[in-house]
Write a protein that binds this DNA or RNA. Structure first.
Ligand SMILES: [Zn+2]
Ligand SMILES: [Zn+2]
Ligand SMILES: [Zn+2]
Ligand SMILES: [Zn+2]
Lengths: 121, 121
DNA sequence: AGCAGAAATGAAAATGATTTTCATTTTCAA
DNA sequence: TTGAAAATGAAAATCATTTTCATTTCTGCT
């Protein structure tokens, strides 16, 4: 966890939701932080692979990031405004386990995202 | 529905699943079809807005397309050798629907991938 | 402190998917 | 037939992201 990663976590905390790398870079600039765009990308990559940050995609394909809580969860994301609800998934947890065992797979993980249009949109 | 859109639908039928615009373009070329990359993109846009084709995103952000009505399924992928099993997911289908409705979301879709280590590895 | 190697940094260039431009060709109804 | 509208595609532009690479900063050791 280096200096840049701390800066990126800090700005993600202030954002409180999803933001793209480009947006985070601009926010950092406005805050007077000295950090390059390349470094923002590298910090985000590192934080994602450490599971400190969630990465998903806007409809236009741009990657967006946000701080992830430590407990395992999934997301319910609005296709229009991007608002997100963290959801528990005991049903899906059981399903992945079952289906993997049926096929003899071990060390099983999974990804799952639910998306739709939220009540506000 | 113009000539190009028919060609794109044709190649999507032969693919039988998801493919990117670039991949579809190359397949059309190999089939001797005369069609430009720009036109492939335009045909896909049009088909997506007519709800004839589904568009989603690969993890790297590249858009992928498939004919609507290809049967819905998920994948169980080996982390080591990449071998893939197509799986049915009635449990996860129900779960996504329930969880989305609880939060007032409509027009709900989802993605789900299960990964692990296959029996051969 | 002084030094060497490792890690981090960021500007600039490269990459690659997708979109835009624009001149040309095709379609089609009057 | 004719002229406007739609379709086409090559080339250029766009834009997020990655790569390169020279420079700077950090870290552990004497
Ligand atoms: Zn919304
Ligand atoms: Zn889960
Ligand atoms: Zn395997
Ligand atoms: Zn499903």
């Amino acid at each position: 966890m280096n200096k840049s990663e701390v800066k990126v976590i800090g700005i993600l905390e202030r954002v409180g939701g999803f933001a793209s790398a480009q947006e985070l870079y601009q926010l950092l600039q406005r805050n007077g932080e000295s950090i390059g765009l390349t470094t923002v990308y590298r910090a985000l990559q590192s934080l994602v692979s450490d599971k400190i940050v969630d990465q998903l995609r806007r409809d236009d394909g741009e990657a967006i990031y946000r701080l992830c809580g430590d407990s395992h969860h999934h997301h319910l994301v609005c296709k229009l405004c991007g608002s997100t609800v963290e959801i528990e998934g005991s049903a899906i947890e059981r399903w992945t386990k079952t289906v993997a065992e049926q096929h003899g797979f071990r060390e099983v993980g999974h990804t799952a995202e639910v998306f739709g249009i939220c009540p506000n949109c």
